[in-house]
Design a protein around this nucleic acid. Structure first.
Lengths: 292, 292
DNA sequence: GTTCCGCATGAATCGATAG
DNA sequence: ACTATCGATTCATGCGGAA
């Protein structure tokens, strides 16, 4: 079956309208946090954040399949020594829209931002809010089973960074070897605490979103040939992972530089390395792209 | 200086009135969750939880010193496949009362409750909400420093291991020149994720509150001879820890059996062993106790 | 080829200084 | 008084050069 990657350039509140109802299996996104990314997103203020996001979540509710899941990565800012409340207000408002707040995963960041202050410690966690349209949704728990015990975790970690990358470079299929490595061993289901390090080795811009995060949720909530959407694509981490995992993907990005980079990043990888003869596919892709 | 432990039997909404304004340095408590402990507080319903708790938090605001801290351990229940929202609503309402929501610590439970459900994983974390009256409050960060991460151990191992051992073996008493060099680097400040196991060795009832949890916050937010309050004392874990750490403590419990157990656990220690002649003090205490 | 160490670099936060 | 910008603080991580 042919794998699709649709990229849109523009404000996702507009671009999302081009996507059909009930057509997406999983939404994984990390919208710009309040007062962050001023240069790119214009810096959404703390006070207006909920109001700014609600039109987006309304469209997301429309395009998501009834069996689908929406994972929202977010964390509230500290303002005047206090945690802001806009994330909580957002959850309450999204429930009014019809969303079900199924669960809150914790992303426990192994390497959080350093610093010392007199009245607080370093912030080492972020919220991964799970929303659904229906009480019943697709969840493939066996796909994310983990080895038992700490020793296994360490060894798996060592393998994952070096061997995984090497394997990907070899056959381009991705994520195959590690999983099969541990398949025969004793595994358990994970909890709702995800323990990952942030990625800080991106050369061009900072992808605070580690690859393992979307990978984990894509494995958990989708199967091959399902469709994954990221309305705040950024540098395209989610889209890239989805593609390598043989999921169709849709990415929306408002910043032309980011959009262009992702678009160009995709064509070569798919065509030159993996399947050179699909070069024509790139053209088709391009036609599908909506360049503002 | 004499250490005090005041115990009250009764509904904390009533008993708290007996405590003076601005007299408590730290409140650490784990109130009955919604629809839990049916037999004690009558099983607070999910819908009425906020309304039930607000009178308590209002009194807590009154008795807390301006420099004091309130740590609230809580986690929302799952109802009909969805996380309830009463915790978020509670935070919003408490801010209207005048509380400052300074921080949200995560208690990452090492050994969480086992089980398997089709649409969610095991819940391995709880909220530890930090509230304050003022922007500035007492915080003794050095009291909770933790060993540095694994990477440092590996890197420092070759350099420090030999010298450190040799020096310690030599004089046996303290830290030699080399060690003191490394001492400062071996500990770092913790983050806002507290990683502790749940306690499962309680004989009579299951107090899922591990001793280390109140201990950590008592170290962090109080000094010796400060006063710690737990308005939902239960089996008295917080009170017991506070007492052993030479903090004055105040405990309130509505269930006579729990109250009596804690009272008897304390009386012998203070009176018979340490100062037998203070037996009269026990009587005074009794008079202060409100037995329903 | 390993292992080891130096270095830069973060979705941060606070307090002071400046307009 | 109220916002805007800047420096200081701090530590896990990956990369690259060195032993």
């Amino acid at each position: 079956m042919e794998l699709k990657t649709d990229l849109y350039l523009g404000d996702c509140r507009e671009e999302l309208r081009k996507i059909s109802d009930d057509s997406v299996d999983l939404i994984v996104t990390s919208p710009p946090y309040a007062d962050q990314r001023q240069s790119t997103y214009g810096g959404i203020s703390v006070n207006g954040y909920v109001e700014w996001f609600l039109p987006v979540s309304k469209e997301l509710l429309r395009v998501l399949k009834p069996t689908g899941t929406f994972i929202l990565n977010i964390k509230e800012k500290v303002v005047d020594g206090e945690r802001s409340t806009y994330v909580m207000e957002l959850i309450l408002e999204m429930r009014k829209q019809g969303w079900r707040w199924t669960e809150e995963f914790i992303w426990h960041k192994k390497n959080c931002f350093p610093g010392k202050w007199s009245n607080r410690f370093r912030d080492a966690w972020e919220r991964l809010l799970q929303f659904n349209k229906e009480k019943k949704f697709n969840m493939y728990q066996d796909a994310v089973r983990v080895p038992v015990g700490e020793w296994a975790k360490d060894r798996l970690k060592n393998l994952s960074e070096t061997d995984k990358i090497r394997d990907n470079a070899k056959n381009g299929s991705g994520f195959g070897k590690n999983v099969s490595n541990w398949l025969g061993r004793e595994t358990v289901y994970p909890t709702n605490v995800v323990h990952l390090a942030t990625e800080c080795n991106n050369k061009n811009h900072s992808a605070a979103f580690p690859r393992e995060l979307p990978e984990w949720f894509i494995r958990l909530f989708t199967q091959e040939n399902d469709t994954v959407l990221d309305p705040f694509m950024g540098s395209g981490t989610t889209i890239e992972v989805a593609n390598r995992m043989k999921r169709n993907s849709i990415g929306i990005e408002i910043v032309p530089e980011y959009y262009e980079e992702v678009r160009q990043q995709f064509a070569p990888v798919e065509n030159y390395i993996m399947e050179p003869e699909i070069k024509y596919e790139t053209v088709k892709h391009k036609r599908r792209h909506t360049v503002r």
